[in-house]
Each structure stands twice: as structure tokens, then as C-alpha cells.
Amino acid sequence: MEHYTKRLLNPFNGTVQVIADTEIRALSFNARDWELQFRCDSPKGVRYARIGTWCRQTGFKPYPLPPDIDVAAVEIAHSKMLGALQSAPALLVQDDTYELWLLDQTQQLPLALLASCRRQDEMSAATVRALWKAVTSNQLQLANTPEEERRGAPPVSYRVEECVKSRAGQNPRAAWFQRLPDRSAYRVQGDVVLPECLPAEHFPEFLLREDWKSATEQALCHRYLQRLSPRLLVLQHLSHAARDRLEQMACHHALDVADYFHLYPDIADQQRMTALRVEARLRSSLLPD
């Protein structure tokens, strides 16, 4: 069985945890509730049939199986998967180390992360346009200021997208990189890994560049990342300094921190995060039923 965590990208929307072999896979977006899917081969290609859900508290709950599925094969595979789920660690390792980055126009350096995969042979299947997408302002509950509303400004997320699009230029380019344990990376073109190594500091830890020329762009980017910070804290390869800064940015979003907290692989300041979780419990207790 393979065990891994993969980032959900373009837009970044957290991670998915996966346990899989050639016949069956289990997926979870919250590391608690899993959906089991059985691989079915047909003349039309590979599909995955949903066969049930599993969580540690309630165990396996089956779905009705399609009539054309091999029930005996499903039972053997699902029994093996349940054993893997019961023994799996709370968080699986994030190992999608091949990354496709949108490049800035002037320096041709990583600007925003578009896609990722775990193996070099998966890169060709990840056909992604050189166009970065933000999580929408509605999804993030990221409102315009009263002054922005007065002058009819577009949503924050849309304006951040426009900033990135402008910085990428009229003919945007993207490039694949293979990240190393020290977070530096080699550029990859097809089957070839190029010899020049790009230092880790050229790759934005929050998946989007934060250095902008104008104060307006800088403020927009900060507002977007600040609102996204509770989700960004699920990333597994953040430096201590980056995690500490994200935790500070997340201090205004205690309820979101409480929702994502069990997915955080590390904590920079235990006292701060405990206080945020207590605040979340108090605020939740005041919400109407």
C-alpha cells in the first residue's frame, strides 16, 4: 500500500490523504473520514467505483455496489484496505515533490504554484494552463472594505489573480521543478533533470510570491494570504519562521484554525494556538443552534 498526502492546487484548497494499491484506494480531505474506491477497468478506460466510507469511530459503511462489479474481488481488496486504514498514522507524508510553477516575466523565477505530482512520469498527465487561480472571495469569506464597496472594486481574490497575471506577462510561462529535502530544486524538462540547482529561497513557502512593487499589490497579496493562513498551515514543509508567521496571520480566524488544527503537522507557538482553540470553543458556544 502507498500512503501519501497531496496538495489540492490551482487554487490551493488544502490537501487530500491517500492510501492506495493497484486495486483500491481510500481518500480523505480531513484525515478522519475516508471514502473507499475500487478500480474498475473497461474498454472505455479506468474508473473508480465508490464502495463505502470508513472512519475510526463508526467503522466501514458500504455503498450499494454497481451490478457489473466483481463482489468477491471488492471484498478481498476492502478487507486489506481496512487493515491499512486502522494502522495508518494520523497524517500521511506529503511527497508531491514535482512542482509546476508559474514564472514571473522579468526574472523567470517561481511566482505561483500551479500543480504538483509525486513522480516524474506523472508530469505529462498534469496538463495545466499557465494561469494561476485564487480561492474565490466568497469561499474565503474575504470581503471588500466599505471604501472598496463604495467605489465598486472587484473582489479581493479576483484582484490578486490580476496582479499575478500581470506579473507573469502576456506570454506566461511555467516550469517543472523537483524539490529536494532542503527545499532547493532542479528544473525538469520532460525526462531530463537540468543540472542547475535553484536555491530554496526562490520558492515562496506560501505558494505565492509576497514581494510586490506597489503598496496596493502588496496589501492585496497580504490580505489574501492572511485569510488563507488557517489552510496554509496544513503544509508539511514550512520552515519554523514561516509557520510562526502564518500562525500570527491566522490569529483573526480562530474558528477556521479549530477546523483545520488536527491537520497541522507542527506548531510554532503552542500557547498561541491553544488560546485560539479556546477562543473558537467559546465563540462556537455562543452560536445559535
Rank of each mutant, 00 (worst) to 15 (best):
L8G: 04
R209K: 12
Q236I: 07
K133Y: 08
G83T: 10
A241M: 09
L263S: 02
Q17R: 10
W101S: 09
A280V: 00
P195S: 10
S184C: 00
A175M: 05
S28F: 08
Q236L: 04
V164L: 06
L255F: 00
V278L: 12
L113G: 00
R209H: 03
I69Y: 00
P89C: 07
H222M: 01
A258F: 02
R47D: 08
R187P: 05
R283V: 14
A77W: 12
P110Q: 03
Q270C: 00
V93K: 09
Q107K: 10
R159C: 13
S79K: 12
L114W: 01
S239P: 04
L276C: 13
R179A: 06
L113S: 03
P62L: 11
E201V: 08
V156P: 00
K80C: 11
E279S: 13
L82K: 00
D104S: 01
Q218W: 11
C197K: 14
I69F: 03
R173A: 15
I267L: 03
L103C: 10
G59I: 02
C163T: 10
Q139I: 12
M249S: 04
K133V: 03
D266S: 13
R151T: 13
L92G: 07
L92N: 10
K80Y: 10
Q270E: 01
P172F: 02
E210C: 07
A73R: 15
L131P: 01
C117I: 06
E201T: 09
A125T: 14
V257M: 11
A143K: 14
Q120M: 11
S214H: 09
Q226N: 11
L142K: 05
M81T: 04
R227W: 00
W54Q: 10
R129K: 09
Q105L: 13
S87M: 03
